[in-house]
Amino acid sequence: MSQIIDLPDYKEQSPEVASYFKDLKNRSKVLEVNRAGRVFASPKGEIEALKDVSLDVYQREFMTVIGQSGCGKSTLIRILAGLETTTSGNVLLDGEQITGPGSDRGMVFQGYTLFPWLTVKKNVMFGLQVSGKAMAECEKDALQWIDLVGLKKFANAYPHELSGGMKQRVAIARALANRPRILLMDEPFGALDAQTRAQMQAYLLEIWHHIDVTILFITHDLEEAVYLSDRILVLGANPGHVQEIIEVPVERPRRPEQFITAEFLATKKRLENLIHVSAPEHIDTSKMLGMG
């Protein structure tokens, strides 16, 4: 027997969660986006990819951006990385306007972007070397980061010898090695199978727990968004605009069991409604009760 259960309002927060957010918002703002817009010129006319997008990201926050395909998520994160420019509005990093790409904003891409001609170690050392650090120091640092992502044994392997998940771990290590203020991740686990993906999520939370870094994360996967984030920015389409910023009412530290808590499901439901996932979801309560 199955029945539809009533979910609580996703805005309801337990006292712990409420105080967590209060604390979060007292921290300094790493990133401020003020009414950012982006218009692309194309042969068929102008495409407005982003319009009046404003958001703040706080120190050591884990923020996720979700939205339909083509709503401008990548455009937004590329603007933050400095790989793309705004056509209106501005972006401040620690209160200063950004002018181009820089090592203070690390980025992990959906596709594999390790340099295929460099070993894992050399890949991680890349940014350090560019910054002009001494060779020995670069190497020492790089090895520490590689160890942190659990790939010590593969330090001298070439990217083509690694699995997809391993490649992304190296990419994370490579980005973090520069000690960026914020780590930008554009669907980093999009190409991975479900199991690897779950592992990578755990890894990422683990790293985030250990390292003082702010993360802005793009995903298609609603559960992934709820599971990982403090706040979720839902980007509406045509043109890309901020639909809502949701504070995830799920307690930290996060564990996979929380996937079927009421708060989790309520948040997920809200996201579904926002981005129009049409298929209605029936929840098997017997399973839930069994979990007790």
């Binding site: 590329r78 990385a81 400095g82 790989l83 181009g100 790409p101 820089g102 090592s103 904003r105 690390g106 980025m107 891409f109 596709g111 972007t113 340099f115 890349f126 940014g127 560019v130 910054s131 990419a171 490579r174 980005a175 520069n178 930008l184």
Partner: peptide, 11 residues
């Protein structure tokens, strides 16, 4: 993407 990645690494 490699060029993008390199730029975000400070190149």
């Amino acid at each position: 993407p490699l060029l993008d990645a390199a730029q975000t690494l400070g190149a």
